[in-house]
Design a protein around this nucleic acid. Structure first.
Lengths: 234, 234
DNA sequence: TCCCGTAGACCTACGGTGTAGACACCAGTC
DNA sequence: GACTGGTGTCTACACCGTAGGTCTACGGGA
């Protein structure tokens, strides 16, 4: 009675294409959907449809929708790797920053989750994968000679800046990409001239935003200023 | 037949307590609900209930729910005032930063809206009240001698930092406020010791976070570093 | 005076949502 | 064989955002 399938199909003709459903597969599929259609198009039912399962199956692997979203954020953040043994802490932080930017830009729809979910959960209850970069950066900085308090301070300054920067960068949305005139491209002609003279005058500058170099300039300022604001090390 | 009410009641006995519904009243009520119960407890139907109207009435004053949320964010941001004629631009930016922090802390549930809504809308289509601070700060900085490009750069750096800072500060959630031991207060005892030694060791530092002074230190670094990163003025 | 346009409020209804609760099935272990 | 715990499924409930249509009051020409 059974078809060509391996030992995973229970009885009917191939009900579940790829064997058992795991949390990882569920999260991967959810991430893919979010990347494609944005965060509020993700529904439990839609996700189940994409996986070919019953919607209620998902609740075996996530307590509720919030938990699923936490999982998606954790999946993305897991791409971030920190080397706590790097002896050049400045270089390592720069590397982390660039990595973070790259990850955020490749999952723009997840960014609201990344910056927003921690507001709802006490630190110790957050997904473990979310705390990993924090722990590793603390290790990096204490090995570099900073006190725990200063290390924490630097972590906060760095990620505060990173979150702010990425929110800035993702706001650069062009309204009419095919238009050549910057004012029209950005839709700024809609603003009344006498109320927003400065803003309208900056069309060309707005249009030429360069996120990568903006990040570097910010890092320059931050990393130059940090040691003097703490009891400096090395 | 009519009761004590003023000239606003049409016929039945006092159908609408306070006269006609306006966008301002609707937004004020929405803001109050969000402040009280958080953002995802706000529904059109619930809001209508609180206002004593039919749910569909709200659509006379907001195109849809997203527009309503934009309105709430705009209402909050309207509390922010910038004096573009201040001759001391550094002091003025500091004042704006402190104001922003105060506003954000008094409406913590709106913060996700403040940092997140702009990601969905091109700059020129955002609510006007949202663009006001930008325009005013550009005016302030160009009057101080900065080029338009540098002014925009400084605005971005400031608000990037502010958003990052406030997201940081609002993450400080105490799990068991009545507990005296910091480790238990923050729930850090739940983390495995061998996986998160540094983080667990920082319980006391985490518990004594001071947002106000953190903001000031960040501003010191930022405002000291900015002029050298641009073609400095005054 | 009549007429008409418009703005505000309301009602109904549709197709979606998250998820509680109960039940069926299976693999292992005693 | 009986029991147990993880997994999948089905049904059902309460709620959501909002399209479409209707009723009423009001203001301004004609």
């Amino acid at each position: 009675m059974d078809a060509t399938s391996a030992d995973s199909a229970p009885r009917d003709g191939e009900p579940h294409p790829g064997g058992k459903l795991t949390r990882e597969r569920m999260l991967a599929c959810a991430l893919e959907m979010v990347d494609r259609e944005g965060i509020d198009k993700l529904s439990m039912r839609g996700l189940a449809r994409a996986l070919g399962r019953d919607p209620m199956s998902l609740y075996r692997h996530a307590a509720n929708k919030a938990d699923l979203l936490d999982g998606v954020a954790e999946t993305v953040l897991a791409e971030l790797t920190v080397d706590p043994n790097d002896t050049d802490w400045v270089a390592q932080l720069r590397a982390v920053a660039r990595q973070f930017r790259r990850i955020a830009l490749s999952h723009p729809h997840v960014v609201p989750l990344l910056v927003t979910r921690p507001l709802a959960t006490p630190l110790a209850l957050r997904p473990r994968g979310t705390l990993r970069p924090l722990e590793d950066i603390l290790a990096l900085l204490t090995q570099a000679g900073f006190s725990g308090a200063d290390a924490l301070h630097i972590y906060r300054a760095l990620f505060g800046f990173l979150h702010g920067h990425i929110l800035n960068e993702l706001q650069e949305i062009v309204e009419n990409p095919e238009e050549t005139d910057d004012l029209l491209r950005l839709g700024l002609h809609r603003l009344p001239i006498h109320e927003f003279p400065n803003l309208r005058g900056l069309a060309s500058v707005l249009a030429s935003y360069d996120g990568a170099s903006e990040l570097e300039r910010g890092l320059d300022i931050l990393l130059a200023g940090l040691p003097t604001a703490t009891t400096s090390a090395t």
